[in-house]
């Protein structure tokens, strides 16, 4: 399968072009990776090496002290650390799954059905994407207070489920699907729900897998500070920033904390990306 797709992309390619492309990928890739590499290295540096002169690109005596300290600090918290982990994992799973499903469900009629209000809804969604002010947190708070959702899991979950990005992305990917195929399914007696779930969703698998990456990381990195004040409902990033705020002596611990926080999104990314490859088989279904 893998070999097959490789051969397919070899049409229209020259050796010189391949060399140029590889060279650019290596150079720019190195630039992209350098700061990441430094973050990893710094997390394994003992405190005296972080503030050494001249600064070094590598670590001489790698240590796990920073990580040990991080776990010590987290075990002395008032609320058990596992509670924060549970909160983050729970909220992330719920938001990722429900966002992908609800956004795709709304995107399907928007992309493939003609009904009054279709264009208007889409324009609205697109415009909402362009409003980035940070001034909506306050009205959001008022609405949540009105619904009695402040300081509950709902306040963390519901606003992220309805982010405009997902609807826009899914609609753009669903639009090119051939009408003939959907029409045929309808004639065969499939309901709209079934067409959406069993025909459309498998075709746009690369899109919703990508969307799940966006949803996962944006909620994983969210602090939810605006709507949560009970300690036992707070999320991991909030707690880790509190630890990082402990001053210059915690520089190493802070580096370790951001590294630990990065692990779940990276794992999710790797799993999802390897799944995207399998969808190649479906690409012939478009017309």
């Amino acid at each position: 399968m893998a070999k097959d797709t490789m051969n397919k992309s070899r049409v229209n390619r020259s050796l010189g072009g391949d060399i140029m492309v590889t060279l650019m990928l290596v150079l720019v890739g190195a630039f992209m990776a350098l700061p990441l590499y430094l973050s990893v290295v710094n997390a394994f540096k003992p405190l005296d090496e972080i503030f050494i002169y001249p600064p070094r690109f590598y670590v001489m005596k790698p240590t796990t002290t920073n990580f040990k300290q991080l776990f010590q600090m987290t075990s002395n918290l008032w609320v058990p650390f596992s509670r924060y982990v549970f909160n983050s994992v729970f909220v992330t799973i719920v938001v990722t799954i429900s966002h992908v499903i609800l956004a795709s469900m709304a995107a399907y009629p928007l992309a493939k059905h003609k009904f009054p209000g279709n264009k208007g809804v889409f324009k609205f969604v697109q415009t909402a994407l362009l409003f980035t002010g940070g001034t909506i947190a306050l009205p959001q708070y008022i609405i949540m207070a009105f619904l009695g959702m402040v300081d509950t899991y709902w306040a963390l979950i519901l606003p992220s489920v309805a982010s405009a990005l997902g609807l826009f992305l899914m609609k753009q990917f669903m639009e090119p699907i051939g009408d003939a195929m959907l029409e045929a399914a309808k004639i065969d007696g499939a309901s709209e729900w079934r067409i959406w779930w069993q025909i459309v969703m498998p075709i746009v698998k690369p899109a919703w897998l990508t969307l799940s990456i966006f949803a996962f990381q944006s909620i994983w990195n969210a602090t939810g500070n605006n709507f949560i004040y009970s300690e036992q409902l707070k999320l991991l990033p909030t707690v880790l920033t509190q630890i990082q705020a402990g001053g210059i002596a915690r520089t190493g611990v802070a580096a370790a904390a951001s590294l630990v926080l990065l692990i779940p999104p990276v794992l999710f990314f790797v799993i999802t990306q390897s799944n995207v490859l399998e969808t190649m088989a479906h690409s012939g279904m478009k017309d």
Partner: peptide, 10 residues
């Protein structure tokens, strides 16, 4: 949800 938490606040 979109109207409640995005449109109305905007």
């Amino acid at each position: 949800l979109f109207c409640l938490f995005t449109v109305l606040p905007i």
